[in-house]
Each structure stands twice: as C-alpha cells, then as structure tokens.
Design a protein around this nucleic acid. Structure first.
Lengths: 210, 210
DNA sequence: TGTACATCAGTGAACGCGCGTTCACTGATGTAC
DNA sequence: TGTACATCAGTGAACGCGCGTTCACTGATGTAC
C-alpha cells in the first residue's frame, strides 16, 4: 500500500476524478464558467483529455458536479458562521444574531468567490434538485423557525418572510459578485440589507444586532 | 428615393447595423448570451460574416451594445408601467403605488424575458457606465424621493432604503429569470417582496396598495 | 512465493466542427462637373 | 441631362485555433491458482 507516486511517473493518477473537480473549480474561480474546458483541465493535470471520460460522461457533467460542490460549500460556510455566534442570554436576541450571521455569510461567500458564486446557480443538475442549494435554503427556513418560536416574527409577515429574506440577501450577493457594488461600500450595504430584512420581519431592529 | 429592395437582390442591406442588433437580441432571448455568435447573426441575416465588421469592431462590441439596449428597454418598461398607475387623491398613496409599479415592472420584465434579463447585466461597457442601467436606477431613487417628500419614508431607513429595495427586487428578478421560482408561485412572490420592502421602508403596508 | 490473467485507468492520434477574424475584391450609390 | 469618379457597404475565400469526443491501444494493478 505504498503511495502510487513512489513508482516512477504514475501511469495511474491516484484520484483523477477529485483532481479534475478541484482543477475545474480553480478555473471557474479565476475566469468564470466559460473558463472551464475539458481539454484545459486535462492539460492542467498533465493528463490526456480522453482520460477524463473515465470519470465524467461529458463536459456538462463535470460542470454540474463542480457547481453542485460549490453550492455545498456555500451552505457549509453559512453553517460555520452561524456556529461562531456567541451565545447570548436572550433567546430572541440569539435567534436574531444567528439569522444575521447566515445572511452575512451568504453575501460574504459571494463577495470572496465572485465567479464561483455566479456560476454555482447557472447549472443545476436535474437529477438532484435540492441537495446543495437545499443546504443554504434549509438553514434559512430553520432560522426563521427559530425566530418564530421566540415570537420575534410578526405574524403578518410570516408567509412572506422567507421570500423577502432570500431575495434581498441573494440580490446583494448577486450584485457584489458581478462587481455592481463598489468594494468600499460592500460592508455597509450588507448591514443595510440585514437591517431592512430584520425590520420587515420583526417590525424593528435591535441595536445590539448591528 | 425608392426603397433599395426594388432593385433586384440588394447588394446594400439598408440598415445592417440595426438588423444585426435585432437578430442578436432574438438569439440571446432564445438561447442566452452564449447563443449569440457573429457568424450566426450573419447567416440569419443572409449576409457574409465579414460585412458585420463594417458596423462592429468585434463580437464583444456587438454583445455589449445589445446588452446596453436591453437595459434601456428595462428602464422604459418600468417607466411605462409607472405612468399607467391611476392617480389617487392621497399624495402618499400615489407615491406608494408608483413605487410598487416600478418594482413589479422590473420583476415582470425579468419574468417575461428571462435570458435577456440575465444577459443584460453580464456585459457592461466600460465607456458608458450609467447610461441604461442608470435609467432603472434613477427611477428608483426618484421614486424614493417621492416617498420621502410625502413623509412616508421612516427617517431611520432612509439610507438603507435604496439598497434594500434594489437588492430585494433585483434578487427575485434574478431568481425568476433562472427558473428558481416555480412559475405558479411567481405572482405571489412578487407581492411578498413588495410588501416586505414597503414594510421595511415605511413601517407598515397600506391595504389599498396590495 | 511465483505465474497467468482479467480489469480498467490511462495514452495519443485523429475526427469534424464552428468559431472570430483578415484580406483583396466588387459593385451599387451619390456627387462633381 | 449625361458621364467620370470617389466612397464604402457588401462579398467570398481562406486563416488558424481550440474545442469536445472517439477509438484502438497499453501497461500498471490486484487476484486466482
């Protein structure tokens, strides 16, 4: 069970599949979805183009798998951010802070990974609709449940809460990913969005939440 | 000054530039930004590929001009919708209705012209930053001024109003354009967004506005 | 422990394709005389 | 009104390029005996 590297130039790559996804991810990260190409991935991995067909049906499958992976990353990024929120005495404040952390994380991910974020939603595989986008979405509804259970959610707004929160946060994320927001205004904008959403959902904005 | 058509097969096209933009627009409308190609446009117009270089520096210029035109269309679509709003007695109700009309129009345009909308913001020409996107944006700030002058805008929200309104509306527009919203839920979602935004900006939602 | 063999992840050469762009050209048009 | 000429929007053929995909192949690996 020695590592295959030890034997001369490895005829077998080791884990070409994972490497291809990682390499493709980097290409999208740098140049957007159109920068990804099967031949370019092969060249980057010092491997023949044909070899990739052992692992992916075609180039679209590769695209879709990378995008799915990025959506998963986004969800995990949000999860981590939420868990970092320090516990506060008040349950309701806690719920608000956790909610805001999710929103911030979503937008920050888009800001840090503009091209990846932009691409992630362009190709959804039809076979698995709610795998990864589901994670971000589930975190949102979970968070709204939390707010609701502490009585912070205006009863009138309950139905529309999800839609508004999602659209507003996704909207700014999209704008920042497309460089439509001046970088120096981003942090401020992010807070404005969360304030607006919080005001719409709860009728006010907690000072300590800002 | 007879129409050039009258003379056999027209060697000169008439207005190749405008035709090319129109043809390109249709291609993007059907197949997204990647469906646009210089050779395809030429073929569609029954014209040699080289002829297009009399009117466009390269294919990117053509792309950019089409996208700019679509942004202009979007603004005009909003303008028309706003002017259709019947005048009401109350100035403040009037301002709200006009505001909502703008938001609805923005999202409706995206819903009716998914691919065009999606593409419109992908390519902004660097030479003219605020021509056409400016129109939609200017209508928004104009509308917020209107709300402010009737005293409907919460003073606290003033700074963030613009950002929230823009992000929320643009967010749903993006989602619907990418087929991330089930068609039968679109109308409802649209209203939810505008209710949420209005609540965030004014602290309440007028019954007569829904 | 050594040998024969099936497996299958890789190779490398070739395929056809459509793309954007170039170039020397042609012929319709409007203008000057 | 008729003719010579400059203009310039079109032609059509060719360019090189990079792409996704295919195919018969090769050789490293693990397994059965």
């Amino acid at each position: 069970m020695l590592t295959p590297r030890s034997k001369g130039h490895d005829y077998h790559h080791g884990d070409l599949r994972a490497s291809a996804i990682a390499a493709g991810r980097e290409m999208i990260k740098k140049g957007g979805i159109n920068a990804l190409g099967l031949r370019k991935v092969a060249e980057r991995l010092q491997v023949s183009p044909a070899s990739l067909y052992r692992h992916f049906e075609d180039v679209e499958t590769l695209q879709a798998e990378i995008c799915s992976e990025v959506r998963q990353e986004l969800g995990e990024y949000m999860l981590v951010a939420r868990e970092k929120v320090p516990k506060s005495r008040s349950k309701s404040l806690n719920a608000k802070l956790r909610f805001r952390a999710l929103g911030h994380a979503y937008m920050d991910f888009a800001n840090k990974n503009k091209k990846l974020f932009e691409s992630a939603f362009l190709f959804r595989m039809h076979n698995q609709n709610q795998d990864a986008e589901g994670l971000a979405w589930n975190l949102l509804t979970e968070s709204l449940d939390e707010l609701r259970s502490t009585g912070e959610l205006l009863s009138k707004t309950d139905e529309e809460a999800c839609m508004l929160a999602w659209s507003a946060v996704h909207g700014l994320a999209t704008l920042v990913a497309q460089d439509a927001i001046e970088p120096e205004r981003y942090e401020q904008s992010k807070i404005q969005i969360m304030n607006g959403v919080e005001r719409a959902l709860t009728g006010k904005v907690s000072r300590s939440a800002i």
